[in-house]
Structures are given as C-alpha cells and as structure tokens.
Computed example of a mutant assay.
Amino acid sequence: MPDSSPPAPAEAEIAALRAEIDALDDAMHDLLMRRAAVVARMAGSRAKGNTTPLRAGREAAVLRRLLARHAGPLARARIVRIWREIFMANTAIQGGFSAAVFAPGPQSGHTRLAREHFGPLTPIRVHPTPARALAAMTGGEASVAVLPAPVDGEPAEDAWWARLDAPRLQVVARLPFLAGPAADPGALVVAPVAPDPCGEDRSLLMVEAEAGAQRSRIAQALAGAGFAATSLILSRAPAATLALAEVEGFLRAEDPRLASLPWARRIILGAYAAPVPGDAP
C-alpha cells in the first residue's frame, strides 16, 4: 500500500520553498517578456529613427544603479553577468549585433573580455591586427571593434589610438566594467557612434606635442587647463610626441578648456563609464 503518512517537516519546508522559487521564476519571466516588449516598441518607434541600439553609457548607468541597491548573498559579478545577458538579448531584438576583436595571442584575454561583455550568443570574430578589426567594423561586418587598452611607451606605428578616425569612430566602453584583478587585461570598445554619458565617466583626450616633449610639461598643461588626468600615456615619433590622457568627466567638443591647451592638435577619442568595484575577496 502507498505511504499516506504526511511528509516530514523538513520535506514540507523544502517543497514550500521550491514552490516559492517556481512562483518567482514565473514572475521574473513575466518581467523579462514585458521588458522585451517595451524594447520591441522602442525599436519600431519613429522617434528612435535609424540609430544604433548600442547604448554603453545607458547600460553602465543601469548596472551602477542596481549595484548600488544590491544586497544579499548573490555576488555583484553575477548581477553584472545576468544584466549583461539581458542587455544583449534586447539588443538582438533591435537588430543584428556582432563584434570584431583584435587578439594579439591566444593568452591575450581580449576575446574572453568581449565574450563576457557581449554574451556567448553574440557573433565574435578575431582579427590579427587592430587595423583589420577596425576595417571589419567600418565595412559593416561588425557592429563594434574590441581593441587592447593603450599602454605607455608603445611605438607610434603600433598605437592604434593614434590613427583612430575620430570623431567618426569613438571609444564608447572600457572592459571590464566591474573591476577585476590588476593583471586582468583591459580593452576598449570602438563604435561608429558617439558615446553616451552615464553620470560617472572618463574621457580620452589625445594631444600632439613637439618631439621629445617631457611628460611633466604635458601633465602640467593639462592640469593648468583644468583637466583631472587619471593616466597619461605617451607614444613618441620622430616628429612629434603623442599623448593620450584619460580625464575625469564626459568631455565634449565645445568644452572651453580645450582652447586653453598649448597644442593645435587635440582630439577627443571618446568616453566610457568609470569602472565599479568588484566583489570583496
């Protein structure tokens, strides 16, 4: 005969918790479907026009807001991964999206960063040079290009940022958004659109100084114009010194501080959200 005795207290509690989880899953699924429906309406809106669905600053602002209110045992990194997948799923609703990645070697980590940011279902193609990755994007083969973060002292011929076709092409994001180990490689996302601010931004400003210009003089000129530079990267060529400054805030072309700089060539290469802290060790 079947056992008709009531379940043990522990089994009953587990069954009740599982039922609660099932109800929460249904509620989350309902919200995901509602979110996708809103995105679909936005994609079809005449007000949106033919602009790209990529809004790196908007995504960063959403993540920053969620992380600020987050509590409990779920890791901050998990929150970012979950919402990154939601962002990319909704981006796919608005049109095709793919990435061209320059990976200098199998251990570079840039492909992994691109996968983590844009999701496992986003088409990603690896290219042997930054120029090839940029060409794939400008040729319509990819929506964005993912390139290594600039490093100090690299030769001018190797510095892809020195030849970036700004303002037509702009840096719109830095990877990873959630700060990781110091050894984690950094990457920049370049797109054929202007970046959008998130409220806590950093901008990239390139200036061309005279050959042999001292780092201290360039830093002093930036500070004298009112720029708070968080890093300064130099690339020296026989005829000039190229300097790439990461400055606090979202820099616009009409910013009056630019006119205070002593160099004729000064180009804004883009902007991105300042990274946020990861989980405590």
Rank of each mutant, 00 (worst) to 15 (best):
W160E: 09
E154Q: 14
A40T: 08
P104T: 11
W263N: 06
A240N: 09
L31P: 02
G95E: 07
P192S: 09
R84H: 14
G72A: 01
P148A: 07
S231A: 14
A71K: 13
P130G: 01
R81D: 07
R78Y: 12
R236G: 11
P120Q: 07
M42D: 00
I93Y: 02
A259D: 15
F97T: 00
R257P: 00
E20I: 02
V126S: 02
A179C: 07
E85L: 12
L66T: 06
S45G: 15
H127R: 03
A162R: 12
A159V: 10
M42R: 12
L178E: 12
D152E: 10
L269V: 04
A19K: 09
V189G: 02
D165Y: 07
S5W: 10
N90D: 06
E154G: 08
F227V: 05
L205A: 08
A71E: 15
L74G: 01
V189Q: 03
I218L: 15
A213N: 11
A43K: 11
E20R: 15
D3E: 10
A159Y: 14
G226E: 09
F177S: 09
A136M: 00
Q170A: 13
A60R: 02
A131Q: 07
T111R: 08
T230E: 15
A173V: 01
Q220P: 06
C198G: 14
E85D: 15
V39G: 04
P73K: 05
G249L: 05
F177D: 08
L121T: 09
L147Y: 11
L147E: 10
F97A: 00
C198H: 08
I124Q: 04
L54A: 03
L54P: 00
A166N: 05
I124C: 02
